[in-house]
Simulated assay, not measured.
Amino acid sequence: MKRIVIPVLSLFLLGCGNDTLPKPKGYLRLEYPKAVYENAIIPLPFSFEKNKIADPIKSVKSTKNTKGININYPSLKATIYLTYKDVNNNIDSLLRDAQNLTQKHTIKADAISHNSFENSESKVYGMLYEIDGDAASQSQFYVTDSTKHFLSGSLYFYAKPNYDSIYPAAEYLEKDIKRIMETVRWKD
Rank of each mutant, 00 (worst) to 15 (best):
I107N: 05
L13Q: 01
L11R: 02
V8L: 15
P56R: 06
Y142Q: 06
S116N: 13
Q99M: 08
F12S: 07
K160I: 07
V124E: 00
S139Y: 13
W186P: 01
N51Y: 10
L95S: 04
A136K: 14
P43I: 07
G17T: 08
P24G: 05
N100Q: 14
K187C: 03
Y156H: 05
D164E: 15
T144C: 10
F150Q: 03
K187V: 04
S120I: 01
Y27W: 06
A40Q: 12
K2E: 03
R185H: 01
N100H: 09
P74N: 04
Y156D: 05
T102I: 11
N72E: 11
S10Y: 03
T106W: 02
H149Y: 12
G153L: 03
T183S: 06
A35Q: 15
L14C: 14
N51V: 07
Y172R: 10
D164M: 09
I42H: 05
I180L: 13
V8G: 02
P7A: 04
N88H: 08
A170L: 08
S122N: 14
A54L: 02
Y27G: 00
L30C: 03
V36S: 10
D55F: 12
A109V: 05
I6S: 02
N100M: 13
D134V: 11
Q140V: 11
H149F: 14
N65S: 13
E174P: 01
Y167I: 02
E118S: 15
S10H: 00
L151I: 15
F157N: 11
I4C: 01
Y73G: 04
H105L: 15
I69D: 07
K178A: 12
V36G: 01
I112Y: 05
L9F: 14
L76G: 06
T183I: 02
E182K: 10
A98D: 07
I4L: 15
C16F: 14
Y129S: 14
P22W: 11
K187Q: 10
P43K: 09
G17W: 15
L94G: 04
T79G: 01
F157I: 10
V36E: 12
N39A: 12
N90C: 09
D110V: 08
S59I: 15
G126L: 04
Y73A: 05
I131N: 10
F46I: 02
N115D: 13
T66P: 03
T144V: 09
G26M: 08
H149E: 09
L76T: 08
P7Q: 03
N119G: 01
A135L: 10
P43G: 13
K175H: 13
T106N: 12
V60I: 13
D188L: 09
P43F: 07
I91M: 08
R3A: 03
D55N: 15
Y32S: 04
D145M: 03
Y163M: 03
I71A: 06
I177D: 12
S137Q: 12
S154N: 12
K187W: 01
L173W: 06
D132C: 00
K52F: 01
N162L: 11
K61P: 00
D55G: 03
I41H: 07
K160A: 12
G153Q: 04
F150L: 05
Y81F: 14
P161F: 11
I177K: 05
P22V: 07
R3V: 01
S93N: 10
N88M: 09
S139R: 11
L155V: 04
